[in-house]
Design a protein around this nucleic acid. Structure first.
Lengths: 147, 147
DNA sequence: GTATATGCAAAGGGTTTGCACGGTT
DNA sequence: AACCGTGCAAACCCTTTGCATATAC
């Protein structure tokens, strides 16, 4: 096992195209990327690729389990390769910084949601919002990033 | 104490307008509402009110602490009156249903994020995604609501 | 009377879609 | 050769903004 990306696509009835390879490679290289950022990365190699192709390709790659996305805030989602360690995004609503934490820290919480609310949680899909260490206590600040 | 909504606005230097009153009342009545839904509710009383006024008004009401918003998924955020019990939204990515759980169930998780990651969590700001009881195990379903 | 709020219309991000062409199988 | 995938342009949803008018103070 440990199927390759192209096997994975074929298994699900999809074709192998340069665009799909390039988008997947871009996601792996960036580690975190919005569709727009992924487009830019892809265009370093193939300038003709279109944004709508990136969107359609990300959907396909997500379908076959090669990438996932998470929502950080109001803006575009960010995409990750699935072989990356599962992580949670911690977004500071004051300074806008985004930190990562291993998804395992939520294990107890996830277990509780399952037992108390019969809910199977995908904890990494939506970011956790709040305030980071350096902003906490420093009141009356600007909010550079909104959200 | 226990200031009224109009006192609250005045304290922060805002003016009292019918629109602000109507938007606040609509949010309280709906308990969960997107800007668009709030507009419709407001227009039952005052048909001339504009969507951009609803957006600007919600921003003001949030500023002075009378309402908050939470992100459920890709679509528009939902607004709540702040006197409602703080709650978390549990969104099923399969059937799209949204359940509520008291924010208190996350207390231990929030405490852990504070101690381990120096992060002060606003747990109710972003919904938790996953799969609900009835959808779990039932594979190959449609995804009526997306996201 | 003056500053703030509103309505309207236009513009802005992010995403999806229809269609004809081109590439993979 | 048949069908799927792509590029392009237009359309879409949600939200913000500029400006003239109206309104709360």
């Amino acid at each position: 096992m440990n199927t390759t990306w192209d096997q994975r696509l074929r298994e699900h009835g999809f074709r192998i195209t340069p665009q799909r390879q390039l988008v997947l490679e871009a996601v792996e290289r960036l580690r975190h990327g919005t569709p727009e950022e992924i487009l830019v990365e892809v265009q370093r190699t193939a300038s003709g690729v279109n944004l709508s192709t990136v969107y359609r390709t990300l959907e396909v790659l997500e379908d076959v389990g090669l990438v996932t996305h998470a929502h950080i805030g109001h803006g575009a989602p960010t995409y990750h390769a699935v072989d990356d360690e599962q992580h949670i995004h911690l977004v500071c609503d004051t300074c806008g910084k985004v930190a990562s934490a291993p998804a395992t820290i939520a294990e107890a919480f996830v277990a509780q949601l399952r037992s108390d609310h019969a809910f199977i949680t995908d904890i990494s899909h939506m970011a956790i919002h709040g305030e980071c260490e350096s902003c906490f206590g420093a009141l009356g600040e600007e909010r550079p990033q909104g959200e």
